[in-house]
Amino acid sequence: MFLFYVKNVTRHVFKSNNRSCGIDLGVSRFVTINTGKIIQFPQQNKIAQLNNRIRRLQRKLSKKEFGSKNYNKIKKKIAQTYEKRHNILDYHFYKIAQRLTEKYQVICMETLNIKGMLKNSRLSKSIQEKSWHMFTKIIEQKAYEHGRKLIHINQWYPSSKTCNNCQYYNEDLTLNNRTWTCTQCGNKHDRDINAAKNIHHEGLKKIKQNHY
């Protein structure tokens, strides 16, 4: 069980309920819930503009003499753009986390190996820009504040490749396969919804096994 400490936070515990969910974090879809609901990445166009601005400024910075007036001026602009981006995401991530923790007593999600994922050159840029680490920390904080359980699933659990109906393991599934049909039971799966359902199932299993 995670330990999460928040300074100067007054806990406002939501009324208990029997609802639970599993959530899958992704690049093309930010949050997919096992019910099929999809939450898109907030302010996507605005964040993309800020990311592009940061990259342009960083290229300019690399051409300036270290410590010069122009160098420090551009460095300040980069810091300001990062702060603006952070504030936008912080605001919207808190809104998403608030809605999830208000609705669900138990939230199940994967323990993401973000450092390992960043080694994938094709996805590293997208993963960094989605700020998964920031979002998961905010979810942890909100779960703590409102008396909810946040269940972390083992990062090696093959949630995408496992059929949520019969538990068949599809070893041939690739990142390009957004849908797939189980050869054992015939169920057709949306990759992300299937993963969220498996995460939900594994989380509830951990509770029954008294791991939480």
Score class of each variant (00 low, 15 high):
14 F>D: 14
25 L>P: 08
13 V>E: 12
20 S>L: 01
15 K>M: 10
4 F>H: 05
18 N>M: 06
20 S>C: 08
43 Q>Y: 09
40 Q>D: 15
17 N>V: 02
38 I>R: 04
25 L>M: 14
34 N>P: 06
51 N>V: 01
41 F>L: 05
38 I>M: 11
33 I>W: 01
40 Q>G: 13
23 I>R: 01
26 G>A: 13
33 I>H: 02
25 L>R: 05
19 R>H: 10
23 I>G: 02
35 T>A: 03
33 I>F: 06
38 I>S: 04
41 F>I: 06
12 H>W: 04
51 N>R: 04
33 I>N: 01
29 R>E: 15
34 N>I: 07
17 N>E: 05
23 I>E: 01
7 K>P: 00
24 D>W: 05
13 V>R: 12
43 Q>F: 09
5 Y>H: 07
36 G>F: 08
37 K>M: 09
52 N>T: 09
13 V>Y: 12
43 Q>T: 01
21 C>P: 02
42 P>D: 13
26 G>L: 14
13 V>S: 08
6 V>N: 06
40 Q>N: 14
39 I>P: 00
19 R>A: 06
33 I>V: 13
22 G>F: 07
35 T>C: 04
11 R>F: 07
8 N>L: 11
19 R>N: 09
33 I>Q: 04
15 K>C: 10
40 Q>I: 06
14 F>H: 14
7 K>R: 08
39 I>D: 00
51 N>D: 14
35 T>F: 03
30 F>R: 03
35 T>K: 03
8 N>Q: 12
22 G>V: 10
46 K>P: 04
24 D>Y: 06
32 T>D: 00
18 N>G: 03
49 Q>P: 04
10 T>S: 07
26 G>F: 05
51 N>I: 00
16 S>Y: 00
